[in-house]
């Protein structure tokens, strides 16, 4: 439960801020000048804050929409991300965000209209039938706080009018009420991050169980939404072979292939400095203590292990699944630019 809301003082009367505060009536409200006063200072203990994160209501300034790191696309010609939320209410042990920020506070940027203007600018730059995908869950879970933020409802209405652009909502939550309350739109992918239940129970702390996420996927599929399954990161653990085989079987038992827009795999990967910080935050965690290799500028699960896991997952996919819907990090074009061996998907 959020006990403290920090808010930039010029947003106190903003209708969206008022709506957020109304939904958290017991929270104490503290005003500040700029969210960075709370979010940026050194000398904060991310672990302690994660037990009781504050919400910071702020206005995003500067670059609103950014290109995604290479190799992370799901089929569009151009890929961008935007972040209405920094940090996540869940506490996934492998999440790179904990190595990225000084604070575990949840920063909600409420100037949605400015994000929309920036998305329109990017769409305006597309040429000759190009499509762009806009990822909304890079710096935080797209739906975990949706009951408070109202993000999905507003952006679905926006993207509905822009068919050359895709919106990816990426989540570990089951907060699908805003989606189920309306007609599905063709250019939205609701992408669920999934791991075998045994390992998710250990590492996806605070997130709904995998079976609940699969149930939410099934409901959305029945309602006509396009879905994504993100087995990213692939987590090496005892029994991973059976775990991932079963997970893939469970996904396709819940979601008809016709509803699956994309399925993607990626290795456990961290920014190098972020990994060191995460190891300091969790010094007894074997997942983070395990050796890594450098790959495309990231610290990554050793390649031989990851590729063995990925191969097994690819082999476990149903033959009826169109291979063009399967994406592996890094995408082939990113590998080519690094002169790495091509992936046979």
């Amino acid at each position: 439960m959020i006990e403290t809301i920090y808010i930039e003082s010029d947003l106190l009367e903003h209708p969206r801020a008022r709506s957020v505060m109304k939904r958290l009536p017991r929270a104490r409200v503290v005003s500040c000048e700029h969210y960075g006063e709370i979010f940026n200072p050194h000398g904060q203990d991310f672990r302690l804050q994660k037990e009781n994160p504050a919400l910071v209501i702020a206005r995003k300034r500067g670059r609103m929409v950014l290109p995604v790191p290479p190799g992370s696309g799901i089929g569009a010609e151009q890929d961008f991300y935007f972040s209405h939320l920094l940090n996540c209410p869940y506490d996934c042990r492998y999440c790179f965000l904990q190595g990225s920020y000084n604070s575990a506070a949840l920063v909600l940027f409420i100037n949605y209209e400015d994000f929309m203007t920036a998305v329109d600018e990017r769409i305006g730059e597309l040429t000759g039938g190009e499509r762009a995908c806009f990822f909304s869950g890079y710096d935080g879970d797209s739906l975990a706080l949706d009951a408070v933020t109202g993000f999905a409802g507003e952006f679905l209405s926006f993207f509905e009018q822009r068919p050359s652009a895709w919106l990816e909502l990426r989540t570990r939550s089951v907060n699908t009420a805003a989606l189920l309350a309306r007609e599905p739109i063709d250019n939205c992918v609701v992408a669920f991050s999934l791991s075998p239940p045994a390992v998710a129970d250990l590492f996806d702390i605070g997130a709904p169980p995998v079976r609940s996420r699969l149930k939410a996927m099934a409901e959305l599929a029945r309602a006509g939404w396009k879905l994504g399954a993100r087995l990213d990161p692939l987590l090496f653990h005892d029994g991973w072979e059976q775990g991932y085989k079963q997970l893939i079987e469970d996904i396709f038992a819940c979601v008809p292939t016709s509803s699956l827009h994309s399925l993607s795999f990626g290795p456990l990967r961290f920014p190098p400095k972020g990994l060191e910080k995460m190891r300091r935050l969790h010094p007894t965690d074997p997942l983070l203590a395990a050796p890594t290799e450098e790959w495309l500028g990231a610290r990554v699960t050793p390649r031989d292990i990851h590729e063995k896991m990925q191969r097994l997952c690819l082999e476990a996919l149903p033959a009826s699944l169109d291979q063009s819907r399967v994406f592996c990090w890094p995408a082939n074009e990113a590998r080519a630019s690094e002169e790495l061996p091509q992936l046979a998907v």
Binding site: E3, R28, V30, E37, E51
Partner: peptide
């Protein structure tokens, strides 16, 4: 809930403890 210094103008925001029952003020 926040600590302001009149002389230097600097503001610091202590992260308030979970379940704090006491009222707060700058």
């Amino acid at each position: 809930e926040s600590v302001h210094e009149e002389a230097g103008g600097r503001v610091r925001y202590p992260a308030l403890p979970a379940g704090l029952a006491l009222a707060t003020a700058p």
